[in-house]
Design a binder for these strands. Structure first.
Lengths: 244, 244
DNA sequence: TCATCGCAGATTGTTAACAATCATGGAAAT
DNA sequence: ATTTCCATGATTGTTAACAATCTGCGATGA
């Protein structure tokens, strides 16, 4: 039984990351995630392997690996023999994502409200106010991706990697959903909602804060328009190669 | 701008799966997931590409793709130039996973309790009783993976793909956690807990049912032993090639 | 005896060539 | 004018060979 018995190795976990990082593959993923988050990559956009490979001065091999990761995250639609496309979430998927976000953020917000430190409250407040400014100045894409950043920062304070990782994916999918079904008016009453949320967190009312972040998500979902107009083409190369 | 402008394609979503399926890659993933769920693949086991490739009569190419998926699900630890290993969850990760499961299953259970149909209650009851039988007959591995199946069946009735997918991964990670830190006594009082859960679901008490499934998870987590003895070697080929 | 070094052998990482499939555009027919 | 069909180019899927790295073992020396 020489070849078939596999040894247990000692867990050198602390030294190496679970997935190899600091490589081109991750860079591609990050770039595409950023573009999705910013609303620059509309759902349905085709992502040709060769184009992306040239943009990163690398080979198709690594682009394919990146696409697979993004497909796991439901950001990219891999179609056999046809290639990779930015995912186009359906109505049911949109509702599922919002419901899942409420389930997770409710919990993280409750935890965070009970454990947050004073200086961290300041950081969150600044994020909220910055996005309000961005919005009022007409910089709407920036404001939207900024709010995603706020949700992520908030959740990260719960110090639970499983919840944070799941939420990160859901937030990116939300960006796609907003790209398809979002309306300008969806954000009209949001600043008020977020300020209220921050006040509840600041005063330590964890249950009310949990309810309030649910409310934020409810309000956003309620303003979606499920009969959106068709969308225009996109200059993929410019988007991918533009340094943020 | 002939080459750089990418077209938006119409969403043929309903026809094709988001990731190509019915292929060797998925088969490999399923097989390894099943082995992990059954507790047959202890954390730390090395998974050589060539060995798996031979078992499935395929090439390394597809095995690597499968490993990437499993790494994404935190079931496999990909180490550069060293290969793939069954993931070895740490203590913090274990606690995070349980907390995340409570957050998700609390919600799904509440939804299910309000929407479940009569015949579906029967199916769940049978699952609970079957695992109780398995346990009492000494078929413990089967009982444990059966309970995982129960949690999954229950959550699936909430009809939320985002939550179900996230939970599926968390449940598999729980199998790994039990493999490392699990103790025999962890399941002593479980049958009683699950019967109580089913009674609450049956009587439509959604809030209490939600609390009860949290309790199930609390009880399980509380009985973990974070100073486990070292574990023995494993015959990988036998496990992978054995038809369940 | 023990530790260190270095050399195969084994395993994984990467590449480029080839095969398979699809998309585009034009010719022919109705 | 419209539709159908086919050829051709473009894109993706797969393979096998090669390069890089690690692991284990034995030789060497203290």
């Amino acid at each position: 039984m020489g070849k078939t018995a596999e040894k247990i190795v000692e867990p050198k976990r602390s030294l190496r990351p679970r997935i190899k990082s600091d490589d081109v593959e991750s860079a591609i993923c990050e770039r595409i995630r950023a573009a999705v988050s910013a609303g620059d990559l509309p759902p349905g956009t085709k992502l040709p392997e060769e184009t992306i490979a040239e943009s990163f001065a690398t080979k198709r091999f690594f682009v394919r690996a990146a696409f697979q990761r993004l497909a796991f995250e439901n950001l990219v639609d891999l179609q056999k023999n046809r290639g990779a496309f930015v995912a186009w979430p359906g109505v049911k998927e949109a509702r599922d994502v919002f419901e899942a976000r409420r389930a997770i953020e409710r919990v993280t917000t409750e935890i965070v409200t009970r454990t947050i430190l004073t200086y961290q409250i300041g950081v969150l407040w600044r994020q909220v106010r910055d996005q309000e400014l961005n919005w009022n100045r007409g910089n709407r894409k920036l404001a939207i991706s900024g709010i995603s950043g706020f949700h992520l920062s908030l959740a990260a304070l719960a110090h639970n990697e499983a919840l944070t990782a799941a939420l990160e994916q859901l937030i990116l999918r939300t960006s796609l959903i907003l790209g398809v079904y979002g309306t300008p008016r969806a954000f009209a009453t949001m600043p008020e909602q977020y300020r209220l949320l921050m006040e509840l967190i600041e005063s330590g009312q964890s249950l009310l804060a949990a309810r309030q972040i649910e409310r934020c998500l409810f309000v956003l979902e309620a303003e979606l328009d499920f009969y959106p107009p068709p969308r225009r083409d996109v200059d993929l190369k410019r988007i991918i190669e533009t340094v943020g």
